[in-house]
Design a protein around this nucleic acid. Structure first.
Lengths: 243, 243
DNA sequence: CGACTGTCAAGAGCAGTGCTCTCAATTGTT
DNA sequence: AACAATTGAGAGCACTGCTCTTGACAGTCG
């Protein structure tokens, strides 16, 4: 009960454990459906219980509380986004760094538009009163940025970057932050590029969020994908990727 | 009762109307406090009623429902942000376009960090089931982007823009969207700059959202304001503003 | 074979929510 | 002073998260 490794060992062995795992998977699946259609704030354990054909208190046998279900859904969504992004990136030739970057951006946008509520859970306003347990959400939650950094670092090492079209001074405190990151991840990219990479990262999600959350007016852009492609091209150029 | 103009006429005349306006203002103020501390999803009309020292059903005399209170708070927050931004922009010399742009960016960030929950209401995940009435929220909600566009257009007309450091092809559908915008607002800026302006806009809010919503890790950046200043400098360069 | 243990679903119940309705009281106007 | 508009109180409905107790079932052990 207290040893997760032992749990994992027996999870698939006894029929009871199998049934239990199946029920939890069902709960997550139903929760994901509710989340996708109504949003995080409207996620209700009672509604999940109803769909499961069970009384409301029964789900507490499988999920401690609403926050834990939220955590499961958070991990679920992060993982799906991470899979989508990595699949798209790996579909491009290994040395086509610009293509890999754009594939990453398009994958994020496509997934976000297909799953607006789940995207909102990941990148929108935090759910009030809910604090994500970093130990469980950080690994799946960092896959996209690690993938992006990997592309940048790979391109830099391969000498595939033209001079970044625009850089700015990196002050000292920021420089030491970047040095820590470089050390932890074993990167080669210099400060200016790493700082620009951070801007590319936030800009990518800023553009996607504006589109998903409807911050552009209702009919301001008739072809939002063209706007996004333009943004991707400019962002690629900002790191020296864009040929 | 059905003529808003007549309502506006009498709003301050009769003592009853005055008391009514005061009560509504109190409700908005209390709602803003709750919103600021707990977030939009936790906003409760009953809690507001309690703080107002009145039974829950009484507030429905002044506010039709929760959604209308949300609309009032939305307008309230947009207006405060718009005021903060315009004040900061106007504090800079009229022809210091780069300074005005950076003042705008810093004002957005400062307000957002001071009012994270209200910022989340404006730029985070949409509240499930709530549809903002465009007629009431669009005017206050467009002040920041209009201010940004005004700076860009002014700089362009004044010939104060160096060649934008990075542009990309603007495809046809996007170009006609931009043409519409240019026509509606009476702008002079060409397609490339306007498209870059849109990217600057989303990037600015993307950077602010990442910081406010805690998307950077807890201790990834020890000096987030330096990171933001760097981003601002690069974004300024993207439109040709940055010296 | 019988008893025992662990797991599970059901139901009642508490405190909270948005919202509607009725009724009585207060208030401003005529 | 009499009337009408406005307001607050209270009850009530349907919903939420969550806890606790109770009874039923399974597998296991003496």
């Amino acid at each position: 009960m207290s040893d997760p490794a032992a749990d994992a060992e027996t999870t698939l062995r006894t029929p009871r454990a199998r049934a239990r795992a199946q029920t939890i998977a069902d709960i997550v699946r139903l929760g994901r459906d509710h989340l996708a259609t109504q949003g995080a704030a409207a996620l209700s354990l009672r509604a999940v219980a109803r769909d499961l054909g069970v009384v409301s208190s029964a789900v507490y046998r499988y999920v401690a509380n609403r926050d834990e279900l939220l955590t499961l859904l958070l991990v679920d969504a992060y993982s799906e986004l991470g899979d989508a992004v990595e699949t798209a990136v790996n579909a491009m030739p290994e040395r086509d760094f610009d293509g890999r970057f754009k594939a990453l951006g398009r994958a994020v946008r496509t997934w976000a538009l297909r799953e607006p509520a789940r995207y909102g859970l990941l990148f929108g306003s935090p759910v009030p009163g809910y604090k994500a347990p970093a130990g469980r959400t950080t690994p799946p939650g960092t896959r996209v940025i690690y993938s992006l950094i990997g592309i940048l670092d790979g391109a830099y090492r391969a000498g595939a970057l033209t001079a970044a079209s625009r850089t700015a001074v990196v002050p000292s405190a920021l420089s030491s932050d970047l040095e820590s990151i470089r050390g932890e991840l074993g990167l080669a990219v210099p400060d200016e590029l790493l700082a620009n990479g951070a801007l590319v990262w936030t800009s990518l999600f800023g553009a996607v969020s504006f589109e998903v959350f409807g911050q552009y007016g209702a009919d301001t852009f008739s072809a939002p994908e063209e706007l996004f492609e333009h943004h991707l091209a400019v962002l690629a150029g900002m790191t020296g990727l864009g040929a």
